[in-house]
Design a protein around this nucleic acid. Structure first.
Lengths: 182, 182
DNA sequence: CCCTTTTCACCTAGGTGGTAAGAT
DNA sequence: ATCTTACCACCTAGGTGAAAAGGG
């Protein structure tokens, strides 16, 4: 499924006339597997377990480190800089055998999205300059735990309130949402 | 609206490693405006006038000669050649003020679609070689009369039978269509 | 008990010809 | 009479979380 909210960046400082490739990948934040607490007392299903994650042990074997190229790649710096770049086509899966080119992640593990900019070097021996033509950007606030089903009611409500495709599950106007809920 | 059936080509003979732009444009077939015959006897609307076009006079002023770049442009020759290239995103309009970048045509005029291949010359003075880096292909069987409403019942039925988006107007299985109708 | 998979109703987004009204 | 425009029901295509079923 798509990653939501979508990773979006505003880019400055490119050479407007040069070609660039934009891509993303995901690296494990730690070497741990997480789980939810065991409730001893019965709890209604909609309460979604506890509100925190416990370490459940060592991480599962690392998944194939796929990358997602922004579908507009390659494009000129001027094109990338003139508006916000949105990775809304990026899809995540837990299927190790996926052959749709989606990003493969382990469920119940924590990940750090990374954003990479590659300058398309017109020189014949461009491979030699791969190091300097490659810049990586990490925004720690975009870290998340991959799941197959939501574990937290407020995450669910945030998605229902802000993802247009989940409009069918809303029971009030999303404009009122930040005021009515903390 | 989209052009339907879609213009599609299979390409051979490109340099697999070189970049190419693919584009289409439309040129008037003649300098005429067409119209349907006046029936003196009343005719049911569904009969769609006559089955032929009459010359109605001189063509309207030529429309801005827009071009449509295939959205995958630029791409490597290998990419273009490995499957049929389909111009299914190409849209036609009769609105002279259109600002969606669609191809502007005069209704009731005849047009010839043209297909162009542009080799992206990596040389600094590539403008000098524009002539030799540019090839045009014309398939006369793709000529058509632009309309705002269909003038021929068999064209309507052909579209209903073969365009998936018109499935709501079908009254039998399209697989049976060529056998049941001439 | 905890997590994953599958299916579903309900959306967004947009491509069809039909149809009625409008323009010339 | 002929052609154009605007709107519509009906599709395709695909992104949502809910819920039920399944696995360990």
């Amino acid at each position: 499924r798509r990653m939501f909210p979508t990773f979006q960046v505003k880019i400055f400082g490119m050479d407007p006339m040069a070609d660039y490739m934009l891509l993303m990948d995901f690296v494990p934040v730690d070497d741990k597997r997480y789980r939810q607490v065991t409730n001893t007392r019965p709890v209604p299903r909609y309460a979604f377990h506890s509100s925190s994650w416990l370490v459940a042990g060592k991480a599962d074997p690392a998944t194939p480190g796929r990358v997602h190229y922004h579908p507009d790649s390659p494009a000129k710096g001027a094109q990338w800089m003139k508006q916000i770049v949105s990775f809304d086509k990026l899809k995540l899966t837990n299927n190790l055998l996926d052959d749709n080119g989606h990003i493969i992640l382990n469920s119940m593990h924590r990940y750090q999205p990374r954003f990479h900019v590659v300058y398309v070097d017109p020189r014949k021996d461009s491979e030699k300059y791969a190091e300097e033509n490659f810049k990586t950007f990490v925004f720690e606030e975009t870290r998340f735990t991959a799941v197959t089903a939501y574990q937290n009611h407020r995450i669910t409500q945030l998605k229902i309130a802000s993802n247009p495709f989940a409009k069918g599950f809303r029971d009030c106007d999303p404009e009122d949402w930040p005021r009515n809920h903390r």
